[in-house]
Computed example of a mutant assay.
Amino acid sequence: MTLYRWQSPVQDEDGNVMPGATVEVRSEATGLLATLFSDKAGAVPLANPFAADSNGLAGFYVAAGFYRLEATSGLLIAEARDINLGAMNAGLYDPGAVESDTFNAANHAFSPTGTGLTSTTTQTALAELAGAKEDIGRYSAIRDITLTADTLVLTDRGKLIRSTNGSATTITVPPQGSVAWLDRTRIDFLWYGAGQPTFAAGSGVTIRSEDSKLKIAKRYGAASLIRLASNEWALVGNLAT
């Protein structure tokens, strides 16, 4: 189990340090006292409540979650709510919410729904995002279509798709139900081989183009597909019927 470090001086609402204050830590979700540790490995339990040191400094290790802290010293009471330990960007949310040593992104679940990514952990999602990043004026990659039939995929966004087959080629735009297309997705195409590319709409998909043209007009000509809405695309460029 990964444990996260919280450490901070305990202060009242006027900013006065509270030496030796009694610190109580509870889960925001359950209201129960949290299980605390004195070390990263979780080998040394820490009492809850526990006492801040003579300088008012308090610290502990705990499992990921949202926590409520209450510190008391005589008549003085200080409280902090919704302290985020172990979640994404926890260090930005609360200065004390940092894992000992480093933020362990590999241990954090990530939901790719609606993002266009496929990763399921924060670490791999960041790596995938960095790899797919398209610089201004630069394609993320070039993909060659070598067969006479091709169906676009999510990772084609931001790429140049080059049709290289010597025979006529059909390029199909699949529906939103099959591919989680992102808003304003753009894919560029180049007729490179001898076979003329034709664009085809998948089930429920509408391709809008000038005079309903669905072919690239001439070899080495180009076209672009731009997602306008769910299952609605614009086809622009050097087109023919």
Results as ranks from 00 to 15, higher is better:
Met1Gly: 07
Thr2Lys: 11
Leu3Ala: 05
Leu3Thr: 01
Tyr4Met: 02
Trp6Tyr: 15
Trp6His: 04
Gln7Ser: 13
Asp12Thr: 06
Glu13Ile: 12
Glu13Gln: 15
Asp14Val: 06
Val17Met: 08
Pro19Asn: 00
Gly20Phe: 04
Val23Asn: 01
Glu24Lys: 13
Arg26Val: 10
Ala34Gly: 03
Thr35Ile: 01
Thr35Phe: 00
Leu36Ala: 05
Ser38Tyr: 10
Asp39Gln: 02
Ala41Phe: 06
Gly42Lys: 08
Leu46Tyr: 03
Ala47Glu: 13
Phe50Glu: 01
Ala51Val: 07
Gly56His: 01
Ala58Ile: 00
Ala58Leu: 02
Val62Ser: 01
Gly65His: 05
Phe66Cys: 03
Phe66Ser: 07
Phe66Arg: 14
Thr72Arg: 14
Thr72Tyr: 08
Leu75Cys: 02
Leu76Met: 10
Ile77Trp: 04
Ala80Gly: 08
Arg81Gly: 00
Asp82Arg: 15
Ile83Trp: 06
Ala87Phe: 13
Asn89Thr: 04
Ala90Pro: 05
Gly91Pro: 05
Ala97Asn: 02
Ala97Cys: 09
Val98Glu: 04
Val98Asp: 02
Glu99Ser: 14
Asp101Phe: 15
Thr102Cys: 11
Ala105Glu: 08
Asn107Ile: 07
Asn107Gln: 12
His108Thr: 15
Ala109Lys: 14
Thr113Tyr: 11
Thr113Leu: 09
Thr118Leu: 11
Thr118Trp: 08
Ser119Phe: 04
Gln123Ser: 13
Thr124Gly: 04
Ala130Phe: 09
Ala132Gly: 06
Ala132Cys: 02
Lys133Ala: 10
Glu134Asp: 11
Glu134Thr: 11
Asp135Ala: 14
Ile136Val: 14
Ala141Leu: 02
Asp144Gln: 14
Leu147Arg: 11
Leu147Trp: 08
Ala149Lys: 12
Asp150Thr: 10
Thr151Arg: 09
Val153Ile: 10
Leu154Ala: 15
Arg157Cys: 02
Ile161Phe: 03
Ile161Ala: 01
Arg162Pro: 09
Ser163Cys: 13
Gly166Phe: 07
Val173Trp: 00
Pro174Met: 02
Gly177Trp: 12
Val179Trp: 03
Asp183Asn: 13
Asp183Ala: 14
Thr185Gly: 06
Arg186Trp: 02
Phe189Cys: 05
Trp191Phe: 07
Tyr192His: 10
Gly193Leu: 01
Gln196Pro: 14
Thr198Leu: 07
Phe199Thr: 03
Phe199Asn: 04
Val205Lys: 08
Val205Met: 09
Thr206Cys: 07
Ser209Trp: 09
Lys213Ser: 12
Lys215Gly: 06
Ala217Arg: 14
Arg219Leu: 14
Ala223Asp: 04
Arg227Cys: 01
Leu228Ser: 11
Ala229Trp: 10
Ala229Pro: 05
Ala229Arg: 12
Glu232Asn: 12
Ala240Lys: 05
Thr241Pro: 10
